[in-house]
Design a protein around this nucleic acid. Sequence first.
DNA 1: GTAAAAAGATGATGTAGGTTAAGAAAATTG
DNA 2: CAATTTTCTTAACCTACATCATCTTTTTAC
Lengths: 194, 194
Amino acid sequence: MPFDLLLNNVSKYIHLTEAEKEVFFSFLQQKSIKRKAFLLDEGEICRYSAFVTSGCLRGYTVDKNGIKHVLSFAPPGWWIADMYSLISQKPGILNIEALEDTDIILLSKVNQEKLYNEVPKFERFFRILIENSLVANQQRIVDNMSLTAEERYSIFCKRYPTLIDHLPQKQIASYIGVTPEFFSRMRTGLLRKS
Amino acid sequence: MPFDLLLNNVSKYIHLTEAEKEVFFSFLQQKSIKRKAFLLDEGEICRYSAFVTSGCLRGYTVDKNGIKHVLSFAPPGWWIADMYSLISQKPGILNIEALEDTDIILLSKVNQEKLYNEVPKFERFFRILIENSLVANQQRIVDNMSLTAEERYSIFCKRYPTLIDHLPQKQIASYIGVTPEFFSRMRTGLLRKS
DNA sequence: GTAAAAAGATGATGTAGGTTAAGAAAATTG
DNA sequence: CAATTTTCTTAACCTACATCATCTTTTTAC
């Protein structure tokens, strides 16, 4: 069943009847994205939330010097979207790109609204999802303000163990907020210590 | 009416009947906090969301060197809580302190859950509130990664004009993530330019 | 209204992490 | 599997911002 992983995810927070599951499924669509292809480009209006079932996406912004900053990774079991654009339906700043061939399930903004009306439980589900995301983001702000790059890396390793041996170093460097060069130096420093 | 400002805030996103308003009000309590007093100390479990009606609160964490980092300000019309602790009901890391004598309206976690059940519309209200908060936090992460302190200050001035002439400089410095000394120098630099 | 405390300014010096550049290793592509 | 592209490493030098210390100004509390 292609929606299994997603259904698991949803069932952690709300209980659905068979009928409600059917409604939910009818609002979803599947899609595959090739490595290096984009689900969303900055400047576009984000019309979908995406749930990754295999592969990995990353969301990043480009600053005025052309440097990319990774805001989030989406490995299997994670949602990704440009929340600002999705909510406001204005052009966003996020690029969402496949780091490898990736399968996703899409829920359009329009269908999400319908879902809220037809199965109000989903208000709760997405509220909880966003609450968790907010907590993670607040923690990241605190970490960026109060920890060294080395400490942030160590936290990243603990928090996303599956991503570590999966991602190129420069992606992780970008996520924790340092240059690839510094990240490399930092890592050889860490190895020397242990 | 002491709940006017809050009702305005709620009415932006959902429409309430008189009966629903009554239910809502019955779940709320008012409180005053003296300048320098704490609504929440780190290590405590956060049992309330607070809505500020007058005065100003700040939420901050303390790092291992004893340095305080301001995560958020809550002027009138804003909500504040330790979201991590509120959700998980585990000890949190946030200190919430009154920067001046402040009046707030409290909604307890318990009453919030009751409210969701008795007036499900509030699921939507808080979902939207948290969505907006998430977007602001994501933007802050991006800003911290890609902008200089000066640029972040300039954005802060535009985004929170009422706070600027209201707050001690060191609070703003802490929010944008620099030392008070550097902030002071930066500001005299900016004045010289204009 | 005055003593004490907090906030702000400024100078000298220190450092985490950035920049530039260039070569080596690894991964992709056809 | 060879050519190309991407990633990683290392080194020299640079800069935004931190730290420490001292002084002035403003705010707070009694």
